[in-house]
Design a protein around this nucleic acid. Sequence first.
DNA 1: CACCGTCAAGTCGCA
DNA 2: TGCGACTTGACGGTG
Length: 422
Amino acid sequence: MSIGYACIHMGSTKTKLSTIYLKNFSEEKFLAILDSNLKALEEIINYNIANNIKVFRISSDIVPLASHPINTVPWWDIYRDRLITLGKLIKMNGIRVSMHPGQYTVINSIHENVILKSIEDLRYHTRFLDSLGCDKSSKIVLHIGGIYGDKELSIQRFIDNYKKLDSSIKNRLIIENDDKSYNVEDVLYISEQANIPVVFDTLHHRLNPPQDNKYNQYEWLELCGRSWHKDDGKQKIHYSQSANNYKNGAHSKYIKASTFLDFYSNLKNKDIDIMLEVKDKNLSAIKCSLLIDDDLKIKYLEREWARYKYYVLSNSTKNYQAIRALLKDKSNPDALKFYSLIEASLDCEITKNAQINAIEHMWGYFKKESTENEKKSFLKLLQGYKENTKTLSSIRNFIYRLSYKYSIEYLLDSLYFYISED
DNA sequence: CACCGTCAAGTCGCA
DNA sequence: TGCGACTTGACGGTG
């Protein structure tokens, strides 16, 4: 079993994708942005390698305006070598990448131009994965589309249009149950008619189950597994938790450890790939991987602790002490306890005292080295925060800039700068 | 530098 | 009829 995350990466500034808007599109600008995006992707892949994350969804935004008529730049040619090199890095490290076009790509639309644009978009996604040299197990996930007042007709339109697609697209396309129109039973029906692997999405299933829901989610999941053939790679599923008590399909801030473990223990076939859909992305992917690691080493939790430490300290001194105590026992690493304490810190109310305490801890890195002006600025900011005239984020920015200036890697890697809220 | 409206695109549901 | 949700941050103009 491998666990992965989608598109965005948290905890580094070097992994951000850039984009370009129609009104200032130019070949030069486009190529510069694609260049920077490929560098960011390489950063992300290297991070995934270092953290043993084997499943990753590449953002459709990697090539901006890729399928828009304005963009006639043959980027796959211009950056051929770089794409191949990147693909090799992915392949050699056993990473499985995928893509997922957004809600605008609808091949069962009743509008001919929407279908045509959607096919163009699928061509783009296929071309990107092809350019990396990925095999057939690198998939492109698609929803079925709209209902247009007649579900049966719309399902048939999907099947007919699917059959007309280029085989290079069909090799990669897989279909997913969505949260309001097409439930897992509908998607399995389409799968049987057109021989397409099905991605089972747990949250969508919960929001939109078949009417006579005759199986439980684990049984549906197994049924979906039968639609995967050998060269499609391992069965993939999407797992997420709801942000607002199943009111809509919004994803939670993080994957709750105990809930995930419960789900995992009920899985019959553990030889599948799980794509997490969650706001904190790679953080939850690492968490879930460690939670199910049979051979968990204390050093993995210690590495996690290094990242979370100042964030936890800024929110809860009590949890900070509890985690320190937990990690003292090096012979018996307990990921569930560890992450439950992290979660408690993510959920607790911000208090000024804890924030100030964490800031003073971090300031310790600069006390000696910093210039007189920096010391003055710091004291002024801190005083301002205490008196409500300065925001927390202005202090955070200040400390981040100092960390960068003095190359304090430990702080630069701290999630304190990336997951804190005001 | 902080703030905030806008961004290429589709469909559905609700006021 | 028109707007928000889905999801999503980053761009770029303004003050």
